[in-house]
Amino acid sequence: MKVPVKVDGRRLTLSNLDKVLYPETGFTKAEVIDYYTRIAPVLLPHLRDRPLTVKRYPNGVDDGFFFEKNAPQHSPSWLRVVTLPVPGSTKNRETIDFAVIEDLPSLAYYANLAALELHVPQWKVGENGKPLPPDLLVLDLDPGPPATIVDCCRVAVLLREALAADGLTAWPKTSGNKGMQLYAAWDNRVEPSHYARELAQRLEKEHPRQVVSVMTKKLRPGKVFIDWSQNNPAKTTVAPYSLRARPQPTVSTPLLWTEVEDCESPDELVFTAPDALARVEQHGDLFGQA
């Protein structure tokens, strides 16, 4: 069944609204669209001017998915699209036409495509569609079992102190999966991947029982991997307030530092779509706030 709607004056056709995309909880496509519509005021600022990569799950999280960088061929004319070079593309493409989500109609359009996960780089494009220097630094904390997000929290506090010593203020968020990320506004003092790698290596040297700075799986059990490589301009990280394709509709959720400091159980930092909306109602947008 197709439903024509108007969103902020833009015409959209929504489809299959009763399709269950999260079978464990019965969360439907209609609820996905509703979530993204309601979270839009705090989500859109973190997507604006950033080329979008999505993970689409047309038949739900228990079925197959695909990454999509190119804006769909039949995108509406009002969707902002920027053409960017992609050197070293695995599909031998010289350029990709990326969508840039600027407004609620664009967000609703992608939600209707079952684009559950929204991923963006740590840099923006200018009004001319050309890439700008990175404006964010990200450190992705990935726990190697039996380590959990509780261990990530301990490492996050260490990183917060190290970043503060370099004049950088860290903002934490859950990944919506099993780990978390720290971000900081970046001033391009040096190349961000170089800085992040040196920082991760320093933490590994100072805390060898807690931290690992290389991806080698055999080194990671029981430790937190600080993935500095997410600062590579070709890479993306899940956006704040994006849904994740987990059994439940979990969200990559900005945190209070007190929640990080006090965390004693992984369950304390699992937030679903309704939880995320309630937190925004209570706290506003925590992401990027000192």
Rank of each mutant, 00 (worst) to 15 (best):
D49P: 03
R50M: 08
R50V: 04
R50D: 12
L52R: 03
L52F: 07
T53V: 14
T53E: 13
T53G: 00
V54F: 02
V54S: 03
V54R: 00
K55N: 13
K55R: 15
K55C: 10
P58N: 09
P58G: 10
N59R: 11
V61M: 09
V61D: 06
D62F: 10
D63L: 00
D63I: 00
F65R: 13
F65K: 08
F67Y: 15
F67T: 05
E68W: 06
E68C: 03
E68A: 11
Q73T: 14
Q73R: 14
Q73H: 08
H74T: 14
S75Q: 14
S75L: 11
W78G: 07
W78D: 05
R80E: 06
V81P: 02
V81N: 00
V81H: 00
T83I: 05
T83G: 05
T83E: 15
P87D: 03
S89Y: 13
T90F: 05
K91V: 04
K91A: 06
K91Y: 12
K91F: 08
N92F: 01
N92K: 09
R93K: 15
E94M: 07
E94K: 03
T95I: 00
T95P: 00
T95K: 10
I96C: 06
I96V: 15
I96E: 06
D97E: 14
V100D: 01
V100F: 04
I101N: 07
E102K: 08
D103Q: 07
D103V: 12
